[in-house]
Amino acid sequence: MTGPLTVRAAAKINLLLGVGAPRPDGFHTLVTVYQAVSLYDDLVVEAPADLSVETEVAHYIDASHLPAAGDNIVDRAAAALAAHHGRPAGAQVRIDKSIPIAGGLAGGSADGAAALVALDRLHGFGTSDDDLLALAAGLGSDVPFALVGGTALGEGHGELVTPVPDTGTWWWVVVPAADGMSTPAVYRHYDELCPDAPAVPDPPDPLLAALGSGDPRQLAAALHNDLEQAAFDLRPDLAALVTEGVAAGALRGLVSGSGPTCVFLCESAEHARSVAGTLRTARDERVVLVAHGPVAGAHVVDA
């Protein structure tokens, strides 16, 4: 087909992030529970051709943080598909970006997943789900989840993804920070704070039970992030923001992943809008978004 074809992919938050001790290869074994939430990037492709990528950003996103031309994850996704099938996978690509950049919400990973789905469909490759997941893992640890969506257990570096039952609808206030954080710096500080961390984190049984309950208060009590204290030490403003969000009425606030985005669980859509309004009023320049989850992984929305 020649397109245009639109594929939508969602942001992710971490409901739980357990971090093991550093391994000889320098990586950490993770046990995480991802949830895809209703903040989206749309990727539009058409006219198979030499690959070109342009990005349009929402008003609250600083375009200066975008990757340089030719260094986008979409370029790497196209190259991976082309190598897998032995023929070009180019297209004219436009990214309509609403997921904040460098905030721990996996917006880049969402774009990579969307590119795999869109270019596969545009070129009629018919790549199997297993092969798409393998290609996604080669692009980054969060890309397989961006394909799968919903709520899922992530293991290994986070790239081994298993969907988990989740029939609830969970409402979140999402507050990205204006300044990003260095993920390696957060992990290094975690290692300093937790020299006796286990090789493999505990299984997320309480969190999974809370999801099964459908009770937002039970889920709030089970949310956990091993990296949160390290992030707070490096960025005390994040600790202050979490305190502020809870004071505004959120059931629970925490840093998502390695930060710096903070997320706040609320009881309902109305409750989330109320908490968001309070946080916006406190600081006019602050970006405060409302989202719900779980939502679908990368999928075609317009053929």
Rank of each mutant, 00 (worst) to 15 (best):
G180H: 03
F232P: 01
A221Q: 13
M181R: 12
F125S: 04
D202W: 00
H123S: 08
I61M: 12
A58C: 01
V53T: 08
L17V: 03
E56S: 03
P198M: 15
A146H: 00
L153H: 09
A221R: 13
P4M: 13
A231Q: 01
P216N: 08
Q35D: 07
D179E: 15
A247F: 02
V93L: 10
A114E: 09
D129H: 08
E56N: 00
L105D: 09
A247D: 15
A9W: 15
A276I: 02
E244P: 00
V57T: 15
A113V: 11
P184L: 03
T281A: 15
G70S: 02
A136K: 08
R94G: 04
P48M: 06
S256L: 06
A110F: 04
V19H: 13
P260E: 07
T29G: 08
V44R: 15
G156H: 11
L135Q: 12
A114I: 03
V7Q: 04
D191T: 09
L265W: 10
R280T: 14
A102S: 13
A178G: 11
T2G: 08
A303D: 14
D42H: 09
V143Y: 05
P201V: 04
L208I: 08
P24G: 00
S52H: 07
H65E: 13
T162R: 15
A210H: 11
V143W: 04
V242Y: 00
A239W: 04
N72H: 13
D75K: 01
L16A: 12
R235F: 04
A210L: 05
T162G: 08
A89R: 11
D191L: 06
S268L: 13
L5T: 05
F264R: 10
M181D: 03
V117E: 02
M181C: 10
S213C: 11
P216Q: 09
K12D: 07
V200S: 15
G104M: 09
D25K: 12
G107T: 07
G86K: 14
A248T: 09
P204W: 05
V161L: 02
G124Y: 01
A49P: 11
S98C: 05
R23C: 12
T2C: 03
D284A: 15
P176A: 11
E244T: 13
P204K: 12
L279I: 07
L51R: 14
L219D: 01
W172A: 01
V44L: 14
G257W: 11
S52E: 12
V37A: 00
V148D: 01
L238C: 06
P216R: 10
W171R: 07
F264T: 07
A303F: 04
V300A: 08
D233H: 07
V161S: 08
H123I: 05
L147V: 10
D179W: 12
D302K: 06
A89Q: 06
P198Y: 07
F27C: 12
L153K: 10
G297N: 05
A10Y: 02
V53M: 06
L30M: 11
L5H: 00
E159Y: 13
A78K: 02
V263P: 00
A221C: 06
P198N: 14
T29Q: 14
A10W: 06
A276L: 01
L51W: 00
H189P: 05
P260C: 12
A152D: 04
D237C: 01
A68T: 00
